[in-house]
Design a protein around this nucleic acid. Sequence first.
DNA 1: CGGCTTTGACCGGCGC
DNA 2: GCGCCGGTCAAAGCCG
Length: 154
Amino acid sequence: MENFPYSSSNPNPNFIDASENFELSDYNYLFLDDGSSDDFLSQNEIVQSVSDSSGSYSNNPTPTSHNMQKVDAKSRVAFRFRSELEVLDDGFKWRKYGKKMVKNSSNPRNYYKCSSGGCNVKKRVERDNEDSSYVITTYEGIHNHESPYVFHYT
DNA sequence: CGGCTTTGACCGGCGC
DNA sequence: GCGCCGGTCAAAGCCG
């Protein structure tokens, strides 16, 4: 879990605590975008890349220090993990601003924005169409503040 | 009363 | 230009 790609830009112990909601082996790092191009993978392509690789991600980038740096530059990150709850507390306050049924999925997609003032980070959450015990969460942007639940040990 | 959800409307990009 | 599709707005309602 020390390779959690968001840890460098958003140190957040509470997110790691959320691991009790799913097995670590069920945690799948999906996609990382440096923002240099706009051809973000469609949701179908993301789901496809998961079912194809069945747990091992030889074709996908792994969170190295190199692309973690890229995350800091732009950041668009998708995760897929087993969870009964759609929204697990990742330490930030989110305000929902939309819900949409997307094509090729029977499940709705929910749109959230970080409710902290001036912070423009967005997040979208949807269930995996083929295995509804999985949840796909996509983060976009970098918080201009740290999590209100980060504790400092001095 | 203030902040958040809910929900349909609205809008912009893209393909035909 | 038109309609589909995904993303966002905002009015109304809900709840503390």
